[in-house]
Design a binder for these strands. Structure first.
Lengths: 198, 198
DNA sequence: GTATTTATTAGACTGCGGTCTATAAAGATA
DNA sequence: TATCTTTATAGACCGCAGTCTAATAAATAC
Protein backbone atom coordinates (compact mmCIF):
# COMPACT_ATOMS: atom_id res chain seq x y z
CA UNK A 1 0.00 0.00 0.00
CA UNK A 2 1.33 3.36 -0.91
CA UNK A 3 0.30 5.50 2.07
CA UNK A 4 1.51 8.75 0.56
CA UNK A 5 0.20 11.68 2.49
CA UNK A 6 -2.50 13.11 0.34
CA UNK A 7 -1.96 16.73 -0.62
CA UNK A 8 -4.68 19.27 -0.03
CA UNK A 9 -7.30 19.88 -2.68
CA UNK A 10 -9.48 17.66 -4.78
CA UNK A 11 -7.51 14.65 -5.94
CA UNK A 12 -7.11 13.90 -9.60
CA UNK A 13 -9.51 11.46 -11.12
CA UNK A 14 -7.39 8.32 -11.12
CA UNK A 15 -9.13 6.88 -14.14
CA UNK A 16 -9.04 9.91 -16.39
CA UNK A 17 -5.48 9.54 -17.67
CA UNK A 18 -5.98 5.92 -18.63
CA UNK A 19 -9.30 6.61 -20.27
CA UNK A 20 -7.83 9.48 -22.26
CA UNK A 21 -4.87 7.43 -23.48
CA UNK A 22 -7.12 4.54 -24.41
CA UNK A 23 -9.48 6.84 -26.29
CA UNK A 24 -6.52 8.43 -28.05
CA UNK A 25 -5.09 5.12 -29.16
CA UNK A 26 -8.46 3.90 -30.34
CA UNK A 27 -9.38 6.98 -32.33
CA UNK A 28 -5.93 7.55 -33.80
CA UNK A 29 -5.78 3.97 -35.01
CA UNK A 30 -9.28 4.19 -36.43
CA UNK A 31 -9.10 7.57 -38.13
CA UNK A 32 -5.47 8.65 -38.19
CA UNK A 33 -3.74 11.43 -36.28
CA UNK A 34 -4.85 14.27 -38.50
CA UNK A 35 -8.52 13.39 -38.39
CA UNK A 36 -8.83 13.06 -34.64
CA UNK A 37 -9.59 16.23 -32.71
CA UNK A 38 -8.84 16.83 -29.07
CA UNK A 39 -12.55 17.42 -28.59
CA UNK A 40 -13.32 13.98 -30.01
CA UNK A 41 -10.79 12.32 -27.71
CA UNK A 42 -12.19 14.09 -24.66
CA UNK A 43 -15.71 13.08 -25.63
CA UNK A 44 -14.68 9.46 -26.18
CA UNK A 45 -13.03 9.44 -22.75
CA UNK A 46 -16.02 11.15 -21.12
CA UNK A 47 -13.92 13.98 -19.84
CA UNK A 48 -13.78 17.72 -20.29
CA UNK A 49 -11.18 19.11 -22.67
CA UNK A 50 -9.51 20.96 -19.85
CA UNK A 51 -9.03 17.74 -17.90
CA UNK A 52 -7.02 16.46 -20.80
CA UNK A 53 -4.98 19.65 -21.01
CA UNK A 54 -4.28 19.36 -17.27
CA UNK A 55 -2.27 16.24 -18.12
CA UNK A 56 -0.83 16.85 -21.60
CA UNK A 57 -0.11 20.27 -23.01
CA UNK A 58 -0.24 19.31 -26.68
CA UNK A 59 -1.85 16.73 -28.90
CA UNK A 60 1.60 15.48 -29.89
CA UNK A 61 2.63 14.78 -26.31
CA UNK A 62 -0.60 12.94 -25.63
CA UNK A 63 -0.26 10.75 -28.69
CA UNK A 64 3.39 10.07 -27.90
CA UNK A 65 2.37 8.79 -24.47
CA UNK A 66 -0.52 6.79 -25.82
CA UNK A 67 1.43 5.11 -28.59
CA UNK A 68 4.64 4.43 -26.67
CA UNK A 69 3.72 3.63 -23.13
CA UNK A 70 3.74 -0.11 -23.64
CA UNK A 71 6.59 -0.06 -26.12
CA UNK A 72 9.09 2.07 -24.23
CA UNK A 73 11.13 -0.86 -23.05
CA UNK A 74 10.00 -3.40 -25.59
CA UNK A 75 12.75 -2.45 -27.98
CA UNK A 76 15.57 -3.64 -25.77
CA UNK A 77 19.15 -3.78 -26.89
CA UNK A 78 19.53 -7.30 -28.20
CA UNK A 79 22.22 -8.99 -26.19
CA UNK A 80 25.14 -9.99 -28.31
CA UNK A 81 24.75 -13.66 -29.16
CA UNK A 82 28.04 -15.18 -30.27
CA UNK A 83 26.20 -17.93 -32.12
CA UNK A 84 24.56 -15.44 -34.44
CA UNK A 85 26.16 -13.12 -36.94
CA UNK A 86 25.81 -9.44 -36.24
CA UNK A 87 24.24 -9.14 -39.64
CA UNK A 88 21.33 -11.40 -38.75
CA UNK A 89 21.04 -9.75 -35.36
CA UNK A 90 20.71 -6.38 -37.05
CA UNK A 91 18.18 -7.76 -39.47
CA UNK A 92 16.10 -9.26 -36.69
CA UNK A 93 16.26 -6.08 -34.64
CA UNK A 94 15.18 -3.96 -37.58
CA UNK A 95 12.37 -6.33 -38.47
CA UNK A 96 11.09 -5.99 -34.92
CA UNK A 97 11.30 -2.20 -34.95
CA UNK A 98 9.64 -2.08 -38.36
CA UNK A 99 6.71 -4.13 -37.16
CA UNK A 100 5.91 -1.57 -34.51
CA UNK A 101 6.64 1.20 -36.98
CA UNK A 102 4.21 -0.19 -39.50
CA UNK A 103 1.45 -0.83 -36.98
CA UNK A 104 1.77 2.77 -35.81
CA UNK A 105 3.00 4.31 -38.99
CA UNK A 106 0.46 7.10 -39.18
CA UNK A 107 0.89 8.52 -35.68
CA UNK A 108 4.67 8.15 -35.80
CA UNK A 109 4.87 10.07 -39.05
CA UNK A 110 2.58 12.67 -37.55
CA UNK A 111 4.80 12.96 -34.48
CA UNK A 112 7.89 13.45 -36.60
CA UNK A 113 5.95 16.15 -38.41
CA UNK A 114 4.84 17.76 -35.16
CA UNK A 115 8.42 17.79 -33.94
CA UNK A 116 9.38 20.03 -36.86
CA UNK A 117 7.68 23.15 -35.56
CA UNK A 118 7.76 22.49 -31.84
CA UNK A 119 11.23 22.55 -30.36
CA UNK A 120 10.16 21.35 -26.95
CA UNK A 121 8.42 18.38 -28.43
CA UNK A 122 11.37 17.60 -30.63
CA UNK A 123 13.52 17.22 -27.51
CA UNK A 124 11.03 14.90 -25.85
CA UNK A 125 10.56 12.86 -28.98
CA UNK A 126 14.29 12.59 -29.49
CA UNK A 127 14.87 11.36 -25.94
CA UNK A 128 12.06 8.85 -25.97
CA UNK A 129 12.08 7.61 -29.54
CA UNK A 130 15.10 8.62 -31.58
CA UNK A 131 18.08 8.31 -29.29
CA UNK A 132 17.30 4.94 -27.71
CA UNK A 133 16.95 3.28 -31.11
CA UNK A 134 20.03 5.01 -32.39
CA UNK A 135 22.06 3.77 -29.46
CA UNK A 136 20.94 0.18 -29.91
CA UNK A 137 22.08 0.11 -33.51
CA UNK A 138 25.32 1.91 -32.79
CA UNK A 139 26.12 -0.54 -29.98
CA UNK A 140 25.40 -3.49 -32.20
CA UNK A 141 27.59 -2.13 -34.97
CA UNK A 142 30.42 -1.27 -32.62
CA UNK A 143 30.26 -4.78 -31.29
CA UNK A 144 30.41 -6.16 -34.80
CA UNK A 145 33.42 -4.01 -35.49
CA UNK A 146 35.18 -5.38 -32.42
CA UNK A 147 34.41 -8.89 -33.66
CA UNK A 148 35.90 -8.17 -37.04
CA UNK A 149 32.56 -8.37 -38.82
CA UNK A 150 32.95 -4.76 -39.87
CA UNK A 151 36.26 -3.40 -41.11
CA UNK A 152 38.04 -1.28 -38.51
CA UNK A 153 38.35 1.58 -40.98
CA UNK A 154 34.63 2.12 -41.16
CA UNK A 155 32.82 4.91 -39.37
CA UNK A 156 30.27 3.21 -37.16
CA UNK A 157 28.32 6.37 -36.35
CA UNK A 158 27.91 7.07 -40.03
CA UNK A 159 26.78 3.51 -40.68
CA UNK A 160 24.24 3.85 -37.89
CA UNK A 161 23.07 7.05 -39.51
CA UNK A 162 22.67 5.16 -42.77
CA UNK A 163 20.52 2.53 -41.09
CA UNK A 164 18.20 5.02 -39.41
CA UNK A 165 18.17 7.36 -42.33
CA UNK A 166 17.19 4.63 -44.72
CA UNK A 167 14.06 3.76 -42.81
CA UNK A 168 13.13 7.30 -41.93
CA UNK A 169 13.42 8.11 -45.60
CA UNK A 170 11.19 5.18 -46.52
CA UNK A 171 8.72 5.94 -43.75
CA UNK A 172 8.35 9.61 -44.59
CA UNK A 173 8.08 8.99 -48.30
CA UNK A 174 5.37 6.39 -47.96
CA UNK A 175 7.50 3.45 -49.02
CA UNK A 176 7.00 0.13 -47.24
CA UNK A 177 8.97 -0.36 -44.05
CA UNK A 178 8.98 -4.13 -43.85
CA UNK A 179 11.08 -7.28 -43.61
CA UNK A 180 12.45 -6.75 -47.09
CA UNK A 181 13.80 -3.39 -46.12
CA UNK A 182 15.32 -4.86 -42.96
CA UNK A 183 17.06 -7.54 -45.00
CA UNK A 184 18.32 -5.08 -47.58
CA UNK A 185 19.67 -2.66 -44.99
CA UNK A 186 21.43 -5.35 -42.99
CA UNK A 187 22.74 -6.93 -46.18
CA UNK A 188 24.20 -3.71 -47.46
CA UNK A 189 25.72 -2.61 -44.16
CA UNK A 190 27.53 -5.94 -43.86
CA UNK A 191 28.49 -6.24 -47.50
CA UNK A 192 32.10 -7.17 -47.98
CA UNK A 193 34.09 -6.23 -51.01
CA UNK A 194 34.90 -9.51 -52.75
CA UNK A 195 38.46 -10.60 -52.01
CA UNK A 196 40.36 -9.84 -55.18
CA UNK A 197 43.38 -11.91 -54.21
CA UNK A 198 41.56 -15.22 -54.64
CA UNK B 1 5.35 39.07 -78.49
CA UNK B 2 3.13 36.24 -77.50
CA UNK B 3 -0.15 37.12 -79.18
CA UNK B 4 -2.14 34.37 -77.50
CA UNK B 5 -5.83 34.92 -77.98
CA UNK B 6 -7.09 36.23 -74.70
CA UNK B 7 -9.89 34.22 -73.12
CA UNK B 8 -13.08 35.91 -72.00
CA UNK B 9 -13.36 37.43 -68.59
CA UNK B 10 -11.19 39.65 -66.49
CA UNK B 11 -7.57 38.62 -66.89
CA UNK B 12 -5.51 37.62 -63.93
CA UNK B 13 -3.38 40.27 -62.34
CA UNK B 14 -0.02 39.50 -63.92
CA UNK B 15 1.91 40.85 -60.97
CA UNK B 16 0.03 39.11 -58.19
CA UNK B 17 1.72 35.72 -58.39
CA UNK B 18 5.18 37.20 -58.28
CA UNK B 19 4.31 39.55 -55.46
CA UNK B 20 2.82 36.70 -53.44
CA UNK B 21 5.83 34.45 -53.95
CA UNK B 22 8.20 37.27 -53.06
CA UNK B 23 6.22 38.09 -49.94
CA UNK B 24 6.16 34.43 -48.99
CA UNK B 25 9.89 34.00 -49.36
CA UNK B 26 10.57 37.18 -47.43
CA UNK B 27 8.29 36.41 -44.51
CA UNK B 28 9.16 32.73 -44.27
CA UNK B 29 12.85 33.54 -44.17
CA UNK B 30 12.30 36.27 -41.60
CA UNK B 31 9.91 34.47 -39.25
CA UNK B 32 9.86 30.80 -40.20
CA UNK B 33 7.11 28.76 -41.82
CA UNK B 34 5.07 28.18 -38.68
CA UNK B 35 4.92 31.83 -37.70
CA UNK B 36 3.79 33.20 -41.05
CA UNK B 37 0.07 33.26 -41.71
CA UNK B 38 -1.59 33.31 -45.09
CA UNK B 39 -3.22 36.57 -44.05
CA UNK B 40 0.18 38.11 -43.40
CA UNK B 41 1.48 36.99 -46.78
CA UNK B 42 -1.55 38.41 -48.57
CA UNK B 43 -1.17 41.68 -46.71
CA UNK B 44 2.53 41.88 -47.52
CA UNK B 45 1.72 41.27 -51.19
CA UNK B 46 -1.15 43.80 -51.16
CA UNK B 47 -3.61 41.22 -52.33
CA UNK B 48 -6.80 39.65 -50.98
CA UNK B 49 -6.55 36.21 -49.42
CA UNK B 50 -8.81 34.78 -52.09
CA UNK B 51 -6.48 35.96 -54.83
CA UNK B 52 -3.78 33.88 -53.24
CA UNK B 53 -6.08 30.86 -52.97
CA UNK B 54 -6.96 31.27 -56.65
CA UNK B 55 -3.35 30.34 -57.38
CA UNK B 56 -2.30 27.96 -54.61
CA UNK B 57 -4.70 25.75 -52.71
CA UNK B 58 -2.55 25.29 -49.61
CA UNK B 59 0.18 27.08 -47.74
CA UNK B 60 2.51 24.15 -48.38
CA UNK B 61 2.09 24.38 -52.15
CA UNK B 62 2.70 28.10 -52.09
CA UNK B 63 5.85 27.79 -50.04
CA UNK B 64 7.09 24.95 -52.22
CA UNK B 65 6.75 27.21 -55.26
CA UNK B 66 8.32 30.17 -53.54
CA UNK B 67 11.32 28.28 -52.22
CA UNK B 68 12.03 26.14 -55.24
CA UNK B 69 11.22 28.18 -58.30
CA UNK B 70 14.76 29.35 -58.87
CA UNK B 71 16.31 26.11 -57.69
CA UNK B 72 14.36 23.61 -59.73
CA UNK B 73 17.01 23.27 -62.35
CA UNK B 74 19.96 24.51 -60.35
CA UNK B 75 20.61 21.04 -58.95
CA UNK B 76 21.52 19.51 -62.27
CA UNK B 77 22.93 16.07 -62.60
CA UNK B 78 26.66 16.63 -62.52
CA UNK B 79 28.08 15.34 -65.76
CA UNK B 80 30.47 12.53 -65.18
CA UNK B 81 33.96 13.97 -65.25
CA UNK B 82 36.57 11.28 -65.89
CA UNK B 83 39.23 13.44 -64.28
CA UNK B 84 37.45 13.41 -60.96
CA UNK B 85 36.73 10.50 -58.69
CA UNK B 86 33.06 9.67 -58.17
CA UNK B 87 33.67 10.07 -54.49
CA UNK B 88 34.65 13.69 -54.82
CA UNK B 89 31.83 14.28 -57.30
CA UNK B 90 29.37 12.94 -54.77
CA UNK B 91 30.88 15.05 -52.05
CA UNK B 92 30.68 18.18 -54.16
CA UNK B 93 27.13 17.45 -55.19
CA UNK B 94 26.05 16.88 -51.59
CA UNK B 95 27.80 20.00 -50.41
CA UNK B 96 25.89 21.97 -53.00
CA UNK B 97 22.55 20.43 -52.03
CA UNK B 98 23.29 20.97 -48.36
CA UNK B 99 23.98 24.63 -48.91
CA UNK B 100 20.51 25.16 -50.29
CA UNK B 101 19.10 22.87 -47.62
CA UNK B 102 20.69 24.86 -44.84
CA UNK B 103 19.67 28.23 -46.26
CA UNK B 104 16.09 27.00 -46.46
CA UNK B 105 16.16 24.50 -43.65
CA UNK B 106 13.10 25.75 -41.85
CA UNK B 107 10.65 25.77 -44.77
CA UNK B 108 11.95 22.48 -46.11
CA UNK B 109 11.48 20.77 -42.78
CA UNK B 110 8.02 22.30 -42.61
CA UNK B 111 7.20 21.00 -46.08
CA UNK B 112 8.29 17.50 -45.17
CA UNK B 113 6.06 17.81 -42.13
CA UNK B 114 3.15 19.09 -44.21
CA UNK B 115 3.57 16.16 -46.59
CA UNK B 116 2.88 13.76 -43.75
CA UNK B 117 -0.81 14.52 -43.47
CA UNK B 118 -1.58 15.63 -47.00
CA UNK B 119 -1.29 12.86 -49.56
CA UNK B 120 -1.73 15.13 -52.56
CA UNK B 121 1.04 17.38 -51.37
CA UNK B 122 3.28 14.41 -50.67
CA UNK B 123 3.00 13.44 -54.33
CA UNK B 124 3.86 16.90 -55.53
CA UNK B 125 6.72 17.26 -53.10
CA UNK B 126 8.07 13.86 -54.08
CA UNK B 127 8.00 14.71 -57.78
CA UNK B 128 9.57 18.10 -57.40
CA UNK B 129 12.00 17.61 -54.56
CA UNK B 130 12.59 14.01 -53.56
CA UNK B 131 12.75 12.03 -56.77
CA UNK B 132 14.98 14.37 -58.81
CA UNK B 133 17.63 14.39 -56.10
CA UNK B 134 17.34 10.68 -55.63
CA UNK B 135 17.85 10.08 -59.32
CA UNK B 136 20.94 12.25 -59.47
CA UNK B 137 22.61 10.33 -56.69
CA UNK B 138 21.55 6.95 -58.04
CA UNK B 139 22.89 7.85 -61.49
CA UNK B 140 26.18 8.98 -60.04
CA UNK B 141 26.53 5.80 -58.01
CA UNK B 142 25.58 3.58 -60.92
CA UNK B 143 28.18 5.31 -63.00
CA UNK B 144 30.75 4.73 -60.28
CA UNK B 145 29.83 1.07 -60.21
CA UNK B 146 30.34 0.82 -63.96
CA UNK B 147 33.75 2.42 -63.50
CA UNK B 148 34.73 -0.04 -60.84
CA UNK B 149 34.74 2.55 -58.09
CA UNK B 150 32.00 0.63 -56.33
CA UNK B 151 32.04 -3.15 -56.09
CA UNK B 152 29.60 -4.80 -58.50
CA UNK B 153 28.02 -6.75 -55.66
CA UNK B 154 26.68 -3.65 -53.98
CA UNK B 155 23.08 -2.53 -54.14
CA UNK B 156 23.17 0.94 -55.64
CA UNK B 157 19.57 1.78 -54.81
CA UNK B 158 20.19 0.94 -51.17
CA UNK B 159 23.35 3.03 -51.13
CA UNK B 160 21.39 5.92 -52.58
CA UNK B 161 18.84 5.40 -49.85
CA UNK B 162 21.64 5.57 -47.29
CA UNK B 163 22.83 8.86 -48.70
CA UNK B 164 19.43 10.51 -48.68
CA UNK B 165 18.38 8.93 -45.44
CA UNK B 166 21.48 10.16 -43.69
CA UNK B 167 20.79 13.78 -44.45
CA UNK B 168 17.04 13.58 -43.95
CA UNK B 169 17.75 12.08 -40.58
CA UNK B 170 20.16 14.85 -39.72
CA UNK B 171 17.84 17.54 -41.08
CA UNK B 172 14.77 16.35 -39.21
CA UNK B 173 16.62 15.84 -35.97
CA UNK B 174 18.16 19.27 -35.97
CA UNK B 175 21.71 18.14 -36.60
CA UNK B 176 23.91 20.23 -38.89
CA UNK B 177 23.67 19.46 -42.60
CA UNK B 178 26.98 20.84 -43.77
CA UNK B 179 30.22 20.15 -45.60
CA UNK B 180 31.38 17.82 -42.86
CA UNK B 181 28.34 15.67 -43.35
CA UNK B 182 28.87 15.67 -47.11
CA UNK B 183 32.44 14.53 -46.64
CA UNK B 184 31.51 11.83 -44.15
CA UNK B 185 28.73 10.44 -46.30
CA UNK B 186 30.84 10.34 -49.45
CA UNK B 187 33.73 8.90 -47.52
CA UNK B 188 31.68 6.10 -46.05
CA UNK B 189 29.88 5.23 -49.26
CA UNK B 190 33.19 4.88 -51.08
CA UNK B 191 35.04 3.15 -48.29
CA UNK B 192 36.94 0.13 -49.47
CA UNK B 193 37.73 -2.77 -47.24
CA UNK B 194 41.51 -2.84 -46.92
CA UNK B 195 42.98 -5.38 -49.27
CA UNK B 196 44.02 -8.26 -47.04
CA UNK B 197 46.05 -9.99 -49.75
CA UNK B 198 48.78 -7.34 -49.75
C1' DG C 1 -23.80 50.20 -76.70
C1' DT C 2 -25.40 45.41 -73.72
C1' DA C 3 -24.51 40.78 -72.14
C1' DT C 4 -21.33 37.48 -70.56
C1' DT C 5 -17.43 35.73 -68.25
C1' DT C 6 -13.77 35.62 -65.12
C1' DA C 7 -10.86 37.90 -61.36
C1' DT C 8 -10.50 40.73 -57.26
C1' DT C 9 -12.04 42.21 -52.93
C1' DA C 10 -13.95 42.25 -48.24
C1' DG C 11 -15.81 39.74 -45.08
C1' DA C 12 -18.57 35.91 -43.00
C1' DC C 13 -18.03 31.22 -41.79
C1' DT C 14 -16.20 26.34 -40.12
C1' DG C 15 -13.25 23.43 -37.50
C1' DC C 16 -9.11 23.10 -35.31
C1' DG C 17 -5.45 23.47 -31.25
C1' DG C 18 -4.83 25.79 -27.37
C1' DT C 19 -5.94 29.33 -23.47
C1' DC C 20 -8.79 31.32 -20.04
C1' DT C 21 -12.66 32.04 -16.72
C1' DA C 22 -16.41 31.00 -13.68
C1' DT C 23 -18.72 27.56 -11.13
C1' DA C 24 -19.20 23.32 -8.82
C1' DA C 25 -17.13 19.31 -6.53
C1' DA C 26 -13.90 16.64 -3.56
C1' DG C 27 -10.79 16.25 -0.45
C1' DA C 28 -7.67 18.04 3.82
C1' DT C 29 -7.42 21.16 7.82
C1' DA C 30 -9.16 23.60 11.77
C1' DT D 1 -19.21 23.02 11.13
C1' DA D 2 -16.63 26.35 8.09
C1' DT D 3 -12.30 27.23 5.37
C1' DC D 4 -8.83 26.24 2.07
C1' DT D 5 -6.90 24.14 -1.90
C1' DT D 6 -6.98 21.73 -6.02
C1' DT D 7 -9.61 19.42 -9.76
C1' DA D 8 -13.53 18.89 -13.14
C1' DT D 9 -16.72 20.97 -16.08
C1' DA D 10 -18.88 23.95 -19.50
C1' DG D 11 -18.25 27.32 -22.35
C1' DA D 12 -16.23 31.72 -24.13
C1' DC D 13 -12.31 33.16 -26.59
C1' DC D 14 -8.04 33.59 -29.91
C1' DG D 15 -5.47 32.85 -34.17
C1' DC D 16 -5.12 29.97 -37.86
C1' DA D 17 -6.01 27.35 -42.66
C1' DG D 18 -9.26 26.94 -45.76
C1' DT D 19 -14.19 27.68 -47.88
C1' DC D 20 -17.87 30.43 -49.41
C1' DT D 21 -20.66 34.55 -50.80
C1' DA D 22 -21.84 39.04 -52.62
C1' DA D 23 -20.36 43.05 -54.85
C1' DT D 24 -17.49 45.05 -58.15
C1' DA D 25 -13.99 45.34 -61.92
C1' DA D 26 -11.93 44.19 -66.36
C1' DA D 27 -11.86 41.90 -70.17
C1' DT D 28 -14.42 39.51 -74.57
C1' DA D 29 -18.66 38.54 -77.55
C1' DC D 30 -22.43 40.32 -79.84
Amino acid sequence: MSTEKQPAGRPRDTEAAGAIKAATLKLVRERGYGKVSIAAIAAEANVARQTLYNRWNTKANLVLDAVFEETAQYADTPQHDPNQSSKSQLERFLAQVFTHLTENGDPIRALIAAAQDDHAFRQVFSERFVKPREKMVTDLLRNAQNNGEIAPTRNVEMLSSFVHGAFWYALLNGDPVDNDLARNIAGEIFTHVPDRSV
